[in-house]
Design a protein around this nucleic acid. Structure first.
Length: 407
DNA sequence: GCCTTTCCATGGTCCTGGCC
DNA sequence: GGCCAGGACCATGGAAAGGC
């Protein structure tokens, strides 16, 4: 039950029934021209039922507090002030203090904030893990289908995983985590490629082990299946791809489509993965699959599409559906930190804005180094970009210095 | 040139298995 | 059970590359 009081400026507040006989009147209709000066006070009165439920809630809170402190008695020891500690103990025991002054309330609040801070400062031991039985197989399947999926695909995958029953009751996967997983999976792939190059015998045995038909066994909860896609691919190359794969490859383009967005919101528990896989089937391209194999073979940069070739629309701009960068893994050249970077740094010191002729000379000089003989050659574009990024870094550092000086 | 995106090496944490 | 090495997994920071 609610009763209202109407107060005009600092005048005495009056209940509605003392102002008007018609309780259906609104405040505005009663006080039309002085409505700007009106303060409406609403007091709530608890009914008997509210009162008993409130009592229950209060008891419950008290018991929870008591349980918390009995489980972690050291919490109370963090209270410096003895009087405040006594007060808190009184509250816990149900023996509520009749009156608390402002300082006491403030002291208790400060203690609670302190507890809250120390709790939030603790590094959470919880780290999100993908479910080994429900999620990892899906991720691996997606990864096998495409190592460098587009952003839209990753979002779709995230939604598929988050739409599952398992994720409904657990922490949701973020886009960053999906990115990380694919990124780390690629790293693991590279690593295993290196290892196999280092020990061919071992790789042979691993490949052979993959030929062994899967045996259904009972898996422990913490089972972590390992999967060597390189070996699998080699195996497939030797045996020829399966029909299923070619069916997928025969699909359309890899670019994000309006359907991408639609499927993001339409995933359901049962059909979610199928939706995603269906989408894959319409978005993988033959170029991608070839690139997948190629990228496993080496870390060398893949030829960048020239403006005169693929993906150019008639007006000279890359259309969204043909943008190679959205689907093909971006190649990345690494300068040797021991031999090349020092030289580049030296050149940068001499002239941060080299001319095209200088860039040509630098490129040639770097490519003639012994280190480069066993790695993909550097292009003038690489050198140009390096100087560009280096200038940006220099500027960032200078700005940082200035900020420090100002502080 | 600036801002953003993408890639990758690396580090931290957790888990497992072997050894004592 | 305790310790330790190694692997698996995830997050992060720096740098290369893209877009405007």
């Amino acid at each position: 039950m609610i009763s209202g009081l109407v107060q005009v400026a600092n005048w005495k507040a009056l209940p509605f029934d003392q102002i008007t006989d018609n309780l259906d009147d609104t405040v505005e209709s009663l006080l039309k021209d002085i409505s700007n000066h009106v303060t409406l006070k609403i007091l709530t009165k608890q009914s008997s039922t509210d009162s008993s439920s409130s009592q229950c809630l209060s008891d419950l809170k008290q018991r929870l507090l008591k349980a918390a402190v009995s489980k972690q008695p050291h919490l109370l020891s963090t209270v410096d002030n003895h009087q405040i500690r006594d007060l808190i103990q009184q509250v816990i025991s149900g023996d509520d203090p009749s009156m608390l002054n402002f300082d006491q309330i403030q002291a208790i609040n400060e203690w609670l904030e302190q507890l809250d801070d120390s709790h939030s400062n603790q590094k959470s031991p919880f780290t999100t893990r993908f479910n080994q039985l429900l999620e990892i197989p899906k991720l691996e399947r997606w990864f096998r289908s495409e190592q460098n999926p587009s952003r839209q695909k990753l979002i779709n995958y995230m939604n598929v995983l988050n739409g599952s029953n398992y994720r409904r009751h657990n922490t949701k996967i973020t886009y960053q985590q999906i990115c990380n997983w694919f990124s780390n999976q690629r790293a693991a792939n590279r690593q295993s490629t290196k290892n196999r190059q280092a020990s061919p015998l071992q790789s042979l045995s691993m490949s052979q082990s993959l030929l062994v038909p899967n045996v259904q066994t009972t898996l422990p909860n913490d089972y972590r299946p390992k999967f060597d896609f390189n070996s699998l691919l080699e195996n497939k190359q030797a045996n020829g791809p399966t029909n299923e794969e070619f069916q997928r490859i025969d699909g359309g383009s890899d670019s994000p489509t309006p359907n991408d967005d639609a499927s993001v919101h339409s995933v359901s528990d049962n059909g979610s993965e199928q939706e995603a896989m269906k989408q894959e089937s319409t978005t993988s391209s033959p170029e991608l699959s070839l690139d997948l194999n190629g990228s496993l073979a080496s870390t060398s940069p893949k030829p960048r599409p020239s403006s005169a070739s693929n993906g150019m629309s008639s007006n000279g701009q890359l259309s969204q559906s043909q943008t190679p960068s959205s689907t093909v893994a971006r190649s990345r050249l690494m300068f040797d930190p021991l031999t090349e970077l020092p030289v580049l740094e030296k050149w940068f010191e001499e002239n941060p804005h080299p001319t095209w002729i200088q860039i040509d000379q630098y490129t040639e000089a770097l490519n003639s180094c012994q280190y480069r003989q066993s790695y993909p050659p550097i292009s003038t574009h690489n050198v140009k970009i390096w100087f560009k990024n280096r200038r940006a870094k220099c500027k960032r550092m200078q700005t940082g210095e200035n900020v420090k000086l100002m502080i």
